[in-house]
């Protein structure tokens, strides 16, 4: 091989690498920004909460525990409702007695309150779910229709997923000794029913639907409202979105 030949080959190789270095990320970015997963798969489940509609009655929390045999003790919840009280002094207090299951008494010292509201919480079934990422054995996983589930027969009970969830949505099931979480009532939604919390919400604050259906109420809601997720800086891309979230909500 003479020098010229060598140089030409080297130049071609460099050009090929450089071309790929430019083209590959562009292609990936194009795919990423233009094609959310629900364009690829039908159905693909999502969830939305309209904060302004929640009255803090706790029906959803009770229904969830009933439907899913969630332990009744006040430290195990697949969904719960938080109350925020913002005082004129700038003090922010949050509470969730028994996860809001028994409803809320009126807040004390009403004259000093600037505003107060309820925020229902549940698993966001994140697109980039950290719990699924850290599960050492593949007992936490995302189904093809976008729901994050736990395999009770395979979970080893290491609780790494509970540590990894930024939203506190997982707990350690005291009887089964495995991690447990919201399934979006997978046994209901796969039969055409609503999740128990949505079914029992009297005000329509909770919405469930198919993101892959352009005509679904959820898709319309996401298209028309200014929606937001919790802790967006985590990059988890929850499929649970909120309308009317206050900055104090974490």
């Amino acid at each position: 091989m003479n020098r010229r030949h060598f140089l030409r080959t080297a130049a071609l190789a460099v050009a090929a690498f450089a071309g790929r270095a430019v083209a590959a990320p562009l292609a990936a970015a194009e795919k990423f920004f233009k094609e959310p997963p629900w364009r690829r798969k039908k159905p693909y489940w999502g969830y939305a909460v309209d904060v302004a509609k929640c009255i803090g009655c706790g029906r959803c929390v009770d229904a969830c525990k009933t439907e899913n045999d969630v332990p009744r003790e006040p430290f195990y919840f697949r969904t719960w409702v938080e109350r925020y009280v913002l005082r004129r002094t700038g003090e922010v207090s949050v509470d969730s007695p028994n996860g809001g299951l028994d409803g809320y008494p009126a807040p004390r010292e009403p004259e000093s309150i600037a505003q107060s509201f309820f925020v229902p919480k549940l698993c966001g079934h994140c697109e980039n779910s950290p719990c699924e990422q850290v599960c050492p054995v593949g007992a936490s996983f995302k189904t093809v229709d976008g729901v994050v589930l736990v395999d009770r027969k395979y979970c080893i009970g290491c609780r790494y997923c509970i540590q990894a969830c930024p939203y506190g949505c997982r707990y350690f099931h005291p009887e089964l000794q495995v991690a447990d979480k919201c399934t979006l009532c997978y046994h209901r939604i796969t039969k055409g029913l609503q999740p128990a919390c949505v079914e029992n919400c009297p005000t329509g604050a909770r919405m469930f639907g198919d993101l892959s259906d352009p005509e679904s109420a959820l898709t319309k809601f996401r298209e028309t409202e200014r929606i937001q997720t919790l802790k967006p800086h985590m990059g988890t891309e929850p499929k649970l979105v909120y309308k009317g979230l206050h900055k104090e909500v974490r």
Binding site: Q133, V134, C135, P136, V137, G138, A139, Y154, C155, I156, G157, C158, R159, Y160, F172, Q177, V178
Partner: peptide, 19 residues
Amino acid sequence: GQPQRAFEIFMTPNTSSAM
């Protein structure tokens, strides 16, 4: 929680998991 399942870490390790 399920010590008898610990061997799964060797059998089906999830490649994205540090653990």
